[in-house]
């Protein structure tokens, strides 16, 4: 079921052309957004140049949320109907989600220092991101500790599924705990049209890069699974050959 003897040959060893094209497009998008943010957008009246962190910060936050949510969903699918591909997807989404969570937690305080005058404040959204990140890292460590065993895989998946309702409740708890704090983005959105373009360009570039990371990581895990299955099949064949003369005599 989980460690099948038949190696999954649907995983191509050669890197698919679509993936290469996609990597190039993502790289160009990132370059374009960097250039646009550096050259076209004006510096913010109150925050100055630090405001430009915002574009990457929000994009990373989107990538983090999408990645961790997808990791929980794929883990749930893996628990209901175990398959190597669901497991590989769950793991790659989780890893990429954690990477972008660290991006959010690095860029956030830099912004906060300039905007609120301190690196960290127990504002609900910050607390939520910190707790969810800690939980995701814990699940990631758990998956790494029990990499190759069926039990470890199921335990990791179960914990990733648990994380979803827990995060939802953490969201409420920290919201009420933190009381009323200023929102980072007030209603009305971004007024400056250059800034709006920069914002969406950065979001698209980051999400595209995140997708590339997920795809490459997924491929790597699938190839790993294939190698393991092949090794298992080979050792089974060797064993059978060793035993064959004994059985005939």
């Amino acid at each position: 079921m989980t460690q099948t003897l038949s190696a999954d040959t649907r995983v191509p060893i050669r890197v698919p052309k679509t993936l290469i094209i996609w990597i190039i497009i993502s790289a160009l998008l990132v370059q374009a957004s960097l250039l646009w943010i550096a050259l076209k957008t004006p510096a913010d009246v109150n925050l100055g140049i630090v405001q430009k962190i915002f574009y990457f910060h929000v994009g990373s936050a989107f990538a983090m949320m999408l990645g961790l949510t997808a990791a929980s969903v794929m883990s749930l699918i893996d628990l209901i109907r175990p398959s190597d591909s669901a497991d590989a997807l769950a793991r790659s989404f989780l890893e990429v989600g954690v990477v972008f969570a660290f991006c959010v937690l690095t860029s956030g305080p830099l912004w906060a220092r300039k905007s609120w005058g301190m690196y960290w404040t127990w504002e609900p959204r910050l607390t939520l991101v910190l707790l969810v990140t800690l939980l995701a890292v814990a699940v990631l460590i758990l998956r790494m500790l029990a990499k190759d065993s069926t039990i470890g895989r199921r335990v990791g998946a179960a914990m990733a599924v648990m994380g979803a309702p827990a995060s939802y409740l953490i969201h409420f708890a920290v919201k009420w705990w933190g009381g009323n704090h200023p929102q980072v983005i007030q209603g009305g959105g971004i007024q400056n049209s250059e800034m709006r373009v920069a914002f969406w360009l950065a979001v698209v570039a980051i999400l595209s890069s995140a997708a590339v990371l997920v795809a490459t990581r997924y491929r790597a895990i699938r190839l790993q699974q294939r190698t393991q299955a092949l090794a298992l099949r080979l050792s089974a064949r060797v064993l059978r050959r060793q035993r064959a003369p004994m059985e005939t005599s």
Binding site: L131, V132, L134, L135, A138, V139, I141, L142, L145, A146, I151, G152, R154, V155, A158, M159, M162, G163, A166, L169, I170, F172, A173, V174, W176, W177
Partner: peptide, 25 residues
Amino acid sequence: LLAQVRLKEVMLPLILYPMLAPLLI
């Protein structure tokens, strides 16, 4: 679930504490 995982003494609080944060708060 952690009974059969290595380093479970460390892993239990790592998973449990963030998950129980709403109850604690």
